[in-house]
């Protein structure tokens, strides 16, 4: 990150400038080597822990080993929603076999990218059963989701009550929380990008004219 208003570098003496160039060349070479190693490791080894930066879509071969999916139990939901930070948190419960989920998914990913800087965090929770988790990973990779996502474990009743007791359990289920972890909106069924945007915007930037 380059802070804005960074002062220009002071003029350097010739010898110092040469040394600086040499140092920069060395740093560049090392950085390039590191990048090659990282890419190679990423393709050959397991999933990375922690979150990865959002990137604007995937390019190159699909690599589902880069997808990070962690189990989440009902009693972790509240802390998960609170711990994320930001101004709004959208929890999307989906499954690889759920056609409406797959239909709306690209829009949710796009939303996550578009409003990340305004404080939106998107948490995907897969409802896939164990046998379907490989398909879920593949789908996440295809959709370019490079941040940590989750899959549901434990009793459904407790899980659903933790997100929103009124939820019938039909998926996709979307749950929108404000910065205090308070549920502001939830709905069942697929939504297009504009629909998500309409619901998320009032929570991201409360308007004096009211929401909707």
């Amino acid at each position: 990150m380059i802070p804005p208003g960074r002062p220009p570098e002071a003029p350097r003496a010739p010898r110092a400038r040469d040394a600086h160039r040499a140092r920069r060349a060395l740093v560049f070479a090392v950085a390039t080597l590191c990048a090659v190693i990282v890419v190679a490791c990423g393709e050959n080894h397991g999933a990375r822990e922690g979150t990865a930066p959002l990137s604007a879509g995937m390019s190159g071969p699909i690599d589902s080993s880069r997808v990070v999916m962690l189990p989440v139990a009902p009693d972790s939901i509240a802390s998960l929603v609170r711990a994320v930070g930001g101004k709004a948190t959208l929890v999307s419960v989906w499954a690889s076999w759920c056609e409406p989920c797959r239909m709306e998914f690209p829009g949710v990913v796009r939303l996550a990218h578009a409003y990340k800087d305004r404080g939106l965090r998107v948490i995907f929770i897969s409802a896939d059963l164990t046998d379907d988790l490989p398909a879920a990973r593949k789908f996440l990779a295809e959709e370019g989701v490079e941040w940590t996502t989750y899959y549901k474990r434990g009793d459904d009743t407790a899980f659903m009550n933790a997100l929103e007791p009124r939820w019938t359990g039909a998926i996709p289920g979307s749950f929108l929380y404000d910065q205090d972890g308070k549920l502001r909106d939830f709905w069942e069924g697929a939504m297009n990008y504009e629909g998500f945007e309409q619901r998320v915007l009032p929570v991201l930037s409360p308007s004096p004219r009211g929401s909707q």
Partner: peptide, 30 residues
């Protein structure tokens, strides 16, 4: 289809869904 769907088939289904007006309404009817 609700079972595992080949990507091409899904893409076709998505295209059809867009054509028939996948715009702002939800599928949940209960």
């Amino acid at each position: 289809r609700t079972s595992h769907v080949p990507r091409a088939l899904f893409a076709a289904a998505l295209g059809i869904a867009v054509l028939v007006g996948f715009a702002g309404h939800t599928f949940a009817q209960g």
